[in-house]
Amino acid sequence: MAGTWVFVEQKDGNIRKVTFEMLAEAKKFGDEVSAVVFGKGVEALAPEFAKYGADKVYVADADVFGEYNTGAYVAQMVAMIAEYKPNAIMFAHTFNGRDFASRLAQKLEAGLATDVIKAEISAGKGLFTRAIYAGKVLAKVEITTDPILATIRAGVFEVVESAGAGAVVKPAVVATAADVYQTIKDFKPTVSARPELTEAPVVVSGGRGCKGPEGIKVVEQLADLLGAALGGSRASIDSGWLGHELQVGQTGKVVNPNLYIACGISGAIQHLAGMSSSKFIACINTDPEAPIFNVSDFGVVGDLFKVIPLTVDELKK
C-alpha cells in the first residue's frame, strides 16, 4: 500500500494552506505520505511539500492540467490509483476538491466522506468525523472502500513543519484533451484585500443590527484592523448589504477561525451552526437576551455604531 496521498490545492502555483494542514495530519497515521500535484509547470513546487513531511511528491505536469477540470483530473487519478495503489487520498473541501473527489468516488464506486473535521486512517479503513446539519450534529463515518477518500475542511488541522524526502515521482500522463468536457470561458478572481472567509484566522461579521451599508462600513473598520475576513448573517445578505459568498451559516459557509466577532447579529440557529466551532467568540448586540450571547466568550451589550469605533481606537493605541 502506497500510504496516504494528499491532493495539492493550487492555482497558478499558489498552494492553499489546507494542503499543508492535510500533509501534517497525514503524517500522524504513520504510513508513507505523498503530495500529489496536477498542473502546468508545477514541478518546481515539490520542495514545498517536502518541508511538511511529504516522503514522495507525485507530479503530473501537462497542458491539460493547466486549469482544474473534472474530466482530465479524474482520468489521471484513476490511472495513478491503479498504478500506485494508495491506501487513502485526502482532498481539500474546496469547490474543486469536492467536485473532483465526488466524481472520482463514483467512478470507483467508492464511499467518500466530505467536509471532514477529524480523521483516523489505517490500512483499509478510514474513520472520519463530519459536522452535519452545518455543525449541529457530529457524525462519525467509516469507509472501507478502496482507496479511502475524504475531503478535509480548511483550518481544522494544524500546519506542522517536518522534513520529508520529497522524492519526485512522475507518473505517466494519461489524460488528454479528449477527457475535458468543461470549457472554462472566463475566470474572475475575487478582488479583495481581505483573506478568504473559510481560511481566515479572524472573522468579523455584521448582521441586521448594522441597519444598512453604513453599518457594514463600521464593521469593516474592525475587520481590517484585525486583518480579518468579513462575513454576514442571512439578514445582511438578504438585504443586499453583502454578497452571498460572505454568508456564514447553514445555507452559507461554515467557519472555524481562532476569533469570530459577531456585530449586530442576534444568533439565529442557522447562523450559530456556521460559527459556533470558532475558538473564541465575541459579540456586540443591543439586545441582552439575544441568543448570540449564549455562545460568546465575551459579549458586549451595546450599540455597535458606538462600541466598534471606540474599540478600533483602543486597538490602535
Binding site: A105, G111, L138, V141, E142, T145
Partner: peptide, 14 residues
C-alpha cells in the same frame, strides 16, 4: 451503502 455511520454525537455546548 458505501459508507457506514458509526455514531452521532452533539457537539459540546459552548
Amino acid at each position: 451503502n458505501k459508507i457506514k455511520i458509526v455514531e452521532y454525537a452533539l457537539p459540546a455546548a459552548k
